[in-house]
């Protein structure tokens, strides 16, 4: 029982990441009709916003400590971050320590700008082209973006830890009266899950309860009619692209303490996120979120030793297996609408 609870919890944070990326993908597909294979790269750029801010806040000056030597036997140059010099070790250290949450403030404008440039500069030229062309151009763009990041940051993962107060894990088992250490869950993953819930809720509320959201939803349902009413739907859709980019970027920022970011992390999530979108139903926002959590939890279950012993290799194929079964029984996905990508 506790093993099952444990894997459900595990699946939630993995599902959060899938859901956030798939949500952005679906927003773009639903509004602009573009299959955006560069969406994983937006997740990666968000993560590198956190890396960049951490590096910026850690900018240091050097002082020579004659009592210590470096690897060449020369007096050691000790680095002191400027923020620690200016604000003292405690406050300066805390600012660096909180660089990941602080990166949210940086990532929002950066990601909206990246999304805007991407949409206006490249993707808008492919609106009326076949989906295969869109996939090719956005996939190419993703490769270009990740190579740029690799050029500046190298190929190795870069540690970007969470604030110290979120280190360690919650003994969830002991909390609910089970044996000690039976269900443990890292604090930061709880934060990530809560953060994802807030973002997903905000996007839904924005679309549901604002005039802007109403127009966008109308545009998603019937773009031509909304255009005939004199509403500049293209402009709104461009803004939605920026919002989708920001959602992916924020997912990336908050993911950095979970796995040290590297240039390839977007690609690692991209294919799975597309499966999530298809399983959820093309163009369906609730479907994307539901499928994200469902597949995240299933993936966690498939990683259990007992399951692998029973069906070797199941951990590598479970998501695709479930996708096949769902698409065979519900060809439009869990919550897909009639007519989307069926013309």
């Amino acid at each position: 029982m506790d093993a099952i609870l444990l894997q459900i919890l595990n699946g939630l944070d993995k599902g959060s990441a899938y859901a956030l990326i798939a949500l952005g993908l679906t927003l773009i597909f639903g509004t602009l009709g573009v299959v955006n294979f560069a969406h994983g790269a937006l997740f990666m750029i968000g993560a590198f916003c956190a890396v960049t801010l951490q590096r910026f806040l850690s900018l240091s000056f050097e002082t020579v400590d004659p009592t210590q030597t470096d690897f060449l036997g020369n007096p050691l140059k000790v680095k002191t971050p400027y923020v620690e010099h200016w604000f003292g070790p405690e406050i300066g250290g805390a600012i660096i320590d909180w660089s990941v949450p602080l990166a949210i403030l940086v990532a929002i404008p950066v990601m909206v700008a990246v999304g805007f440039i991407m949409e206006r500069g490249l993707i808008k030229h492919f609106y009326r082209r076949p989906h295969a062309d869109q996939i090719l151009v956005t996939f190419g763009l993703a490769i270009v973006l990740q190579e740029i990041i690799k050029y500046f940051y190298g190929a190795n993962p870069i540690p970007t830890p969470a604030p110290d107060m979120f280190a360690g894990s919650l003994d969830f088992g002991a909390l609910v009266g089970m044996a000690e250490n039976s269900i443990i869950y890292p604090y930061w993953r709880l934060v990530y899950f809560a953060f994802a819930a807030v973002i997903i809720g905000s996007v839904f509320a924005f679309l549901q309860f604002t005039t802007f959201g109403m127009v966008v939803r109308a545009g998603m349902a019937d773009r031509e009619t909304v255009g005939l009413l004199g509403i500049n739907i293209d402009k709104r859709f461009t803004i939605m692209f920026g919002i989708a980019a920001a959602v992916a970027g924020l997912a990336g920022v908050m993911y950095t303490p979970i796995n040290a970011p590297n240039y390839h992390m977007g690609m690692d999530f991209l294919v799975l996120s597309f499966v999530v979108v298809v399983v959820g139903g093309m163009g369906s926002l609730p479907g994307a979120v539901l499928a994200g959590f469902l597949l995240g939890i299933l993936e966690s279950f498939a990683s259990m030793k007992e399951v692998i012993d029973l069906i070797p290799g199941i951990n590598q194929i479970i998501i695709y297996l479930v996708a096949i079964i769902i698409l065979l029984t519900r060809p439009r996905g869990l919550m897909g609408r009639k007519g989307v990508m069926e013309e």
């Binding site: 506790d2 093993a3 444990l6 894997q7 039976s182 443990i184 993936e299 259990m304």
Partner: peptide, 12 residues
């Protein structure tokens, strides 16, 4: 890339 589902059962 994420090993949480492999690590979580270790203590059990």
């Amino acid at each position: 890339t994420d090993f949480s589902s492999y690590i979580a059962p270790v203590l059990q």
